[in-house]
């Protein structure tokens, strides 16, 4: 195995493209190092991208924020601007692992790990976040929703890597929330999860919403029926029940050591309902 501390984006792309064996990008390393230790992957090349210019920066852009691929969860959580604009995205990222893991883990890494249970992804999907990808053909942007392909597999092609994630601007009276279910209070992988982003009008009626689910299908799901259930409402009990039912209806989970199909399907709706209410309150709804 070779370890290379890359100096610039072009070098990363070149290294990834030229490697005939297995290459891995290292940002926070909290997935790669575990896989390395467990013998799940034996990379021939590790490219450390933490020293690229701007890769650890959070910058304002068009009323939103561009977050460098190597920004850790702890750094993101300390950024008052992002926390105010996208609290649900931040709380999703902050749920990844322990305080120690937060010191290293990144949103981009969490996304690239390709896990359907990745805690940061439902929030990013609900936020309609866009990743910027550098590759042999230059730079391209892609919706977060289109990155995961199947468990452990993402849509980036050889030579490509994520350089930043963009969280768009928000109107007044808009917010988001993320909830996951785990058996303990910390340190577990999500058994089911929901991200909800919504916008309200002056009287508190929901005018736009995006609802996403994690850990209940091979990839994170965007559930339009669930969003439609609350658009035009003030999140009354009846509309929340429709939202919950819509969420449960699209679940396609597995039985495993972390939860059953039945359980995941049931609580996906419960979590979406609760997350919607938190987002509603954060957006100023009563």
């Amino acid at each position: 195995m070779r370890y290379v501390k890359a100096e610039n984006v072009a070098e990363v792309v070149q290294l990834l493209q030229d490697e005939v064996g297995v290459a891995r990008v290292l940002a926070g390393g909290t997935d790669v190092l575990v896989q390395l230790k467990m013998g799940m992957v034996e990379p021939d090349l590790i490219v450390d991208i933490k020293h690229l210019e701007g890769i650890k920066d959070i910058v304002s852009e068009d009323g939103g924020y561009r977050i460098g691929a190597a920004v850790s969860g702890a750094e993101l959580g300390e950024h008052a601007g992002v926390v105010a604009l996208w609290p649900g995205v931040v709380e999703g990222v902050e749920l990844i692992g322990s305080t120690q893991v937060q010191g290293r883990a990144t949103m981009a890494g969490n996304l690239c790990n390709g896990s359907p249970a990745a805690d940061s992804v439902p929030g990013l999907v609900a936020a309609d976040a866009v990743v910027r990808i550098a590759g042999p053909d230059g730079v391209r942007d892609c919706a977060v929703l289109d990155i995961p392909v199947s468990p452990g597999k993402i849509s980036l092609t050889k030579g490509e890597f994520i350089t930043s994630i963009f969280l768009p601007k928000r109107p007044e009276r808009a917010s988001d929330a993320y909830l996951r279910f785990i058996p303990r209070t910390e340190m577990d992988i999500a058994v089911a999860a929901a991200g909800v982003s919504l916008e309200l009008d002056a009287d508190g009626t929901c005018t736009a919403a995006r609802v996403s689910l994690g850990a209940v299908a091979p990839t994170v799901l965007l559930v339009e029926e669930a969003a439609n259930a609350i658009i035009g409402t003030k999140l009354d009990e009846a509309s929340l029940e429709i939202l919950a039912a819509a969420c449960s209806a699209v679940c396609n989970p597995i039985d495993d050591k972390r939860g059953t199909i039945e359980f995941r399907t049931e609580i996906a709706g419960v979590l979406a309902k609760r997350a919607a209410l938190i987002a509603y309150k954060r957006a100023g709804g009563q």
Binding site: R184, M187, D188, I189, K257, R258
Partner: peptide, 16 residues
Amino acid sequence: LQNPGLLDYRIPVASD
């Protein structure tokens, strides 16, 4: 054994 690690063999953590 499906859960031979401290991730999925869930011993109580302080916040529990």
